[in-house]
Write a protein that binds this DNA or RNA. Structure first.
Lengths: 336, 336
DNA sequence: CGGCAGGATTGGCACGTTGCAACTCTGCGT
DNA sequence: ACGCAGAGTTGCAACGTGCCAATCCTGCCG
């Protein structure tokens, strides 16, 4: 069993309050006792019990980050942003992964409530706002990454998905592409917004485009992209789209890979635009044009919005000004 | 402030012990009190305070997983294995990422000690065995993934890196390749073992091979692989190696991508073998031959070795029988 | 009708920590 | 010589739980 403050006190020949003071208010200590306590701590290898600390304090100086699918590279960038801002403020950060499972997501929220974290940043799978409002009543604040219904207690950080979709669409149209396919999961709001943006661009251009072919994939993974690419490769060349806009980079990379395997030229035969601009986008055989979503900055914004609320509970929720999209043009649309 | 057991008891009109019994020993409760407690808990939205629980219990039923660089795909598979076996046994699992920073690694170990986790699975950056033995004295057991110096209290799970390197080497030699380059980080023991395996194969074959060209890269990332590929592409074709063995798949994918960009044919001009066989290995334009390292199973083995030690502290450390390597042949060595 | 078995419930303490209020001690000014 | 300031130190309560031992209640047997 590990040493406690009492053991240290006994060995040092002082009271446990003195040990506590050594740890939390070193300046009030006399030189001699400080030395005795220091030696005793070293000798016993004493490490304060964090559970007891938290119990005493009422809550831990800790935040939680709950991600829909931690494995996607975009979430890597997002979490780095949250992580950095938490560390800078001296907060601990607990990660968890919902793994696209609503039960797991709920379970993680429950767990963090039980551990009395002070705040939660969440990129949600389903609508969690009612639950988060309930948490807010109990003093646990939260910030959602993505669009949410209006709420007085739950903040959100937004990205202009629709604008990003429009940028992609305008770019493809300006290259003369007229048979555009969209690969995504329209039942997810972000994905749907990107599709709407694409439609906006088509409508605004009033060029003679065909109807947008929407290819629904379950998970926006590279594997899904490979499947889509295979389906397109099987089509007679004349029926293939001349441009594909994918709802994220991973699925775009899958499509790209499959097209190249089948000797379909990118961008000559089919131009390809991804979304997020993750690091992998420029690590492909044909570097990928992509709508840049600043994951790191969005993570930082979410983290600091949360910390601001916790530091000053009376402060208003930050105004949700969406992060702007930016198109990064590479060879998957303009060739070399 | 959240409700406590006392609040629930007051509302239900019972004592706090009864509430505690409802939570921990439901069978001893009478039907009527159980109902009253259930209602009160629901009405208050009571959630037990995990810190207090842990303090009372002396330690949490929790394990920790510390990874060298959580974002490499191989570690994803490893962590899924540990995660599953933890969940099956009813343990909580805390993740942390050392981010290739020894200070962060040490800090994470300290943090988990403070939180009184019962055990740690670690894929370490530096030599942490002395520290882990210290923890073992205080009742925190641990399992290292990878080779460690002999220890009576710290267990390890091994993989036959050298055998895997040999498989790769034999395969390349059997294809008639004689100018083999190795891309890796020989200062890391796993990487070095893979290189030794390659050397074993060359020695055993006593074919007329040239000296193995060792290309040192800092991090085994795709980015590093792109750099290496660029250097090779710049060489006169006659001086290029005819085969490359990369210490992991990510760096192999980078090399592959860069070679393809420069029109160098794989495998005709250069055959390429990776290591780990992560999912990405078959998601490349030319699917990658790779030495399969069963990350998921290794994770499960590490997790269950840890749980076994905790369940039966007297048990011997499991015998470290290394997981065997297996070569997965794809088109990056044998063409289509 | 008294006693008793056994199920249901409760009071109280301990876990390790921290902060407050109270205490001791030394040295200095009056 | 006495009080007092102030630095240094200490005792104690409280955070929310869980468990043990003790108590209460109900119904049944003799």
């Amino acid at each position: 069993m590990p040493a406690s403050v009492k053991d240290v006190a006994a060995l040092a020949g002082v009271s446990s309050s003195t040990v506590s003071n050594y740890l939390n208010h070193p300046h009030v200590l006399g030189e001699t006792s400080a030395a005795k306590v220091r030696d005793a701590i070293a000798q016993l290898g004493y490490v304060p019990n964090e559970s007891a600390r938290q119990l005493r304090a009422g809550s831990s100086k800790a935040l939680a980050l709950i991600l829909l699918d931690a494995w996607l590279p975009y979430f890597h960038e997002l979490s780095r942003g949250v992580e950095d801002v938490a560390r800078e403020g001296g907060w601990s950060l607990f990660f968890s992964n919902s793994n696209r499972d609503a039960d797991v997501e709920r379970g993680n929220i429950d767990m963090f409530e039980a551990h009395r974290v002070q705040g939660i940043v969440i990129y949600p799978l389903e609508d969690v706002v009612p639950r988060l409002e309930q948490l807010a009543d109990r003093g646990i604040r939260s910030v959602v990454v993505g669009p949410i219904p209006p709420s007085t207690t739950v903040a959100s950080v937004l990205f202009d998905d629709r604008g990003g979709g429009r940028l992609a669409g305008e770019h493809l149209l300006s290259l003369g592409r007229r048979r555009i396919a969209f690969v995504g999961t329209p039942s997810v709001s972000q994905s749907n917004d990107r599709l709407q943006g694409l439609r906006d661009a088509v409508t605004a251009a009033d060029a003679a485009t065909e109807a947008i072919d929407v290819i629904d994939v379950p998970h926006l993974t590279t594997e899904d992209g490979l499947d889509v690419g295979a389906r397109i490769a099987e089509m007679p060349a004349a029926e293939r789209p001349d441009a594909i806009f994918a709802a994220n980079d991973m699925v775009a990379i899958g499509v790209l890979t499959q097209l190249l395997r089948h000797g379909i030229r990118v961008p000559e035969d089919i131009a390809l635009v991804g979304f997020d601009d993750v690091a992998q986008a420029h690590q492909t055989v044909v570097p990928l044009t992509s709508v840049r979503q600043p994951g790191y900055e969005i993570g930082r914004a979410a983290g600091s919005a949360l910390i601001r609320q916790l530091t000053d509970p009376a402060a208003d929720l930050p105004a949700p000004t969406p992060f702007a999209a930016e198109l990064i043009v590479r060879e998957s649309t303009v060739g070399r």
